[in-house]
Amino acid sequence: MKSQFALKVSSTIQGLARGNRALVLAAVLGLGAAIATPVQAQGTKIGFVSTERILRDSKPAKAAQAKIEAEFKGRDQELQNLANKLRSQAQKFDKDAPVLSESDRIKRQRQLAELDSDLQRKRREFQEDFNRRRNEEFSHIVEKADAAIKKIAEQQGYDLIIQDAVTVSPRVDITDQVMKALGG
């Protein structure tokens, strides 16, 4: 059952619809603006947090990055050594190729191809492991940041906190407060 107001609006829109669609659109937009105005007049408090800055500049993020780099340093060095070995063997092959027999040339080409395949596989595995480990560490930071954001929102009376927007006024940016709550 429609209210009297809804019935009047409905009949007015239907009457206008017969005459002019542009007027109908204007009436609907005007009605929407009239309804939305009281909500905006109440003074909604909005904040913004840059997740990117938190994951790049906060103390926990820097500590996690250092921990992961230390963890993978040995494997990274192994990959660099393997790449250097492949490069030196390829240079040696290029130098020796004119004097090698056909069978020796084919044999060394296969060895180089196997070494290159092994290097590519190890790089792929390294990158997958590194990304997985990084995501594990940074997901903990995001959880802590979310908890800090909720706490700040409750303490300071925020109605809405947005993460990662295209453009933001510095007066609503609370990223520094979140980083401080995370320990720096």
Results as ranks from 00 to 15, higher is better:
Lys180Pro: 00
Ala64Ile: 06
Asp104His: 05
Lys180Cys: 03
Leu160Tyr: 12
Gly30Trp: 00
Ala33Pro: 03
Ile152Leu: 07
Ser58Arg: 01
Phe126Lys: 00
Phe5Thr: 15
Leu55Tyr: 03
Gln111Met: 14
Leu160Gln: 08
Gln109Pro: 00
Ser58Val: 05
Ser103Cys: 09
Arg87Glu: 15
Asp173Met: 06
Leu29Arg: 02
Leu100Pro: 02
Asn20His: 09
Ser117Thr: 09
Ala165Gln: 07
Val172Met: 05
Ala27Arg: 12
Leu7Cys: 03
Asp104Val: 08
Ile35Gln: 03
Glu78Arg: 06
Gln163Glu: 13
Ala113Leu: 12
Arg110Gln: 15
Gly157His: 08
Lys85Gly: 01
Leu82Tyr: 02
Asn135Leu: 08
Arg124Met: 15
Glu52Asp: 13
Lys59Pro: 07
Gly19Pro: 01
Tyr158Gly: 05
Arg134His: 04
Ala147Asp: 10
Leu182Cys: 08
Leu16Asp: 06
Ser117Gln: 10
Gly183Tyr: 13
Ala145Arg: 12
Val9Tyr: 03
Asp164Phe: 01
Phe48Tyr: 15
Leu100Ser: 05
Phe138Asn: 05
Ile174Cys: 02
Ser169Gln: 07
Arg123Leu: 10
Met1Val: 14
Gln163Gly: 04
Asp116His: 10
Arg56His: 09
Arg56Phe: 12
Arg105Gln: 14
Ala97Tyr: 10
Ala181His: 04
Thr37Asp: 11
Leu31Cys: 01
Phe126Pro: 01
Gln156Phe: 07
Ile13Asn: 04
Asn135Asp: 14
Met179Glu: 09
Lys73Arg: 15
Phe5Arg: 15
